[in-house]
Write a protein that binds this DNA or RNA. Structure first.
Lengths: 246, 246
DNA sequence: CGTTTTATTGAAACACCTCAACAACGGTGG
DNA sequence: CCACCGTTGTTGAGGTGTTTCAATAAAACG
């Protein structure tokens, strides 16, 4: 059964146009999906993986757990994102992926991915591109955690997320669903839950954003981008898919 | 002129075997090189790139600069590493790449990369794989900066670097060249130079590592790995290319 | 409604930062 | 070969952003 809209195709179309044949293949890839409840792990650290997960619906996160219970989230996954391609390299997953909301996931066997990339250069290249985009986001994440204050860091995370959600058409009236607890947010920003709470309060008090019920509303986009110290060069990355400079 | 040893081929061989034809192509890619002096930038933020850089010799780093001068290093590049593939996506570089030592770089035109990946699936896949490895390293970097103390963080960086250098055969007697200033190190670990200095002293005083003249010697590997809280799963990544668990 | 999870608050502790001075080192030119 | 100079490393000390602990309020859940 074909998806009305194929988030994977939508995402990859950012990079290039596809033929009908290629779109058909992408459709077939996500035809069969599996549901994961909020809070459930899609993959757990240490497990062996022989397939690629594609997010069809929902939101998930990649997280690493250290010995003493410390946790670090290293990515949020939204519809269209492929994950665990790298599992072909590692014998075992070095981190877990958990569902933040009830999510629909398509599982593509390793063999299928290999065959497709062998026969369809353009798709192979698109997959590669998607990996490189992830890389760019990861680098910004490091900069964020390494060199920004809690306040800037939180703003940057929100702004980046806002842009990403806009790209895939998941924002309306400057607001979008971001169903994370403050603990989750603390674990993505590399700070304590208490300080996360206080930082959120400040952002709210200053009328920059409002956060409620897992929905974030950007009240003052210009201000938010400014606080975030958002790299205008990095923004190009979003410009060519429709997001404009403030 | 053929390279006696091709670091690019050496690196990609971690993932798969190549035919003579493919190796020949890889050799040709890095046949022509350019020298960059220590301290020079290979690419600067904001510039447009139409080629891929491959490190043939030396060591470089990827760094991001924020408005007020704060800097964050997000990667070290060693022989065999390809960089700026993602530049095909972004209009401009969102960060710079600087040479830490005098380095030899091969510049491969964008068009060449596209042609090769179109005609040679295996090479295309290898490039993709290399990108995914970079991603895994970046994720660990985030965990490091986000959730480890200065002490653990520094240890982790050293241990990771030690493993990477071992992989490409650049360690001898548990020591390797790591020609960074304490400021550089501070910028990679997301801490101040003063605290970096003190952390190094502690690591030295405890007989874990010694650092001198841009050369690091791992005096107590087991201890270092333990302090780093190095993820044994992540280690698999190195195991299949010869590095063994302590 | 109880029960569990999540958000919020206060206050003390501390890891890390900033400032600022000085020592050591490596190169350069006289 | 020494004097000079810029860069890098080291130290002390006070300041602060952030954490930790611990308790309470407020939602969310069944």
């Amino acid at each position: 059964m074909r998806e009305a809209t194929n988030p994977l195709a939508a995402k990859l179309r950012q990079f290039t146009e596809f033929s009908d044949r290629e779109v058909e293949i992408l459709d077939r890839l996500i035809a069969e999906t599996e549901i994961f409840e909020a809070g459930a792990d899609v993959i757990r650290e240490g497990s062996r993986v022989d397939w690629v997960n594609v997010v069809v619906d929902g939101m998930l996160c990649r997280y690493h757990v250290l010995e003493n219970g410390r946790r670090q989230i290293t990515a949020f996954l939204v519809p269209g994102d492929m994950c665990d391609l790298h599992a072909f390299l590692l014998k075992e997953m070095d981190h877990s992926i958990g569902a933040l909301t009830t999510s629909r996931i398509a599982r593509i066997p390793r063999q299928t991915v290999l065959e497709i990339t062998e026969k369809h250069h353009l798709l192979a290249r698109a997959f590669w591109w998607a990996t490189m985009v992830d890389e760019a986001v990861l680098r910004q994440w490091i900069v964020n955690v390494g060199r920004r204050t809690a306040y800037e860091r939180t703003a940057h995370q929100f702004w980046e997320m806002f842009l990403r959600m806009t790209v895939v058409g998941h924002t309306q009236n400057n607001s979008f669903r971001f169903p994370v607890t403050q603990q989750d947010l603390a674990d993505t920003l590399g700070m304590s839950i208490v300080h996360t709470n206080r930082t959120l309060q400040r952002l709210r008090a200053e009328g920059v954003v409002s956060v409620q019920n897992g929905t974030i509303t950007v009240r003052d986009p210009d201000r938010l981008q400014a606080i975030a110290g958002f790299n205008p060069t990095y923004l190009h990355f979003y410009e060519h898919i429709g997001v404009r400079r403030a």
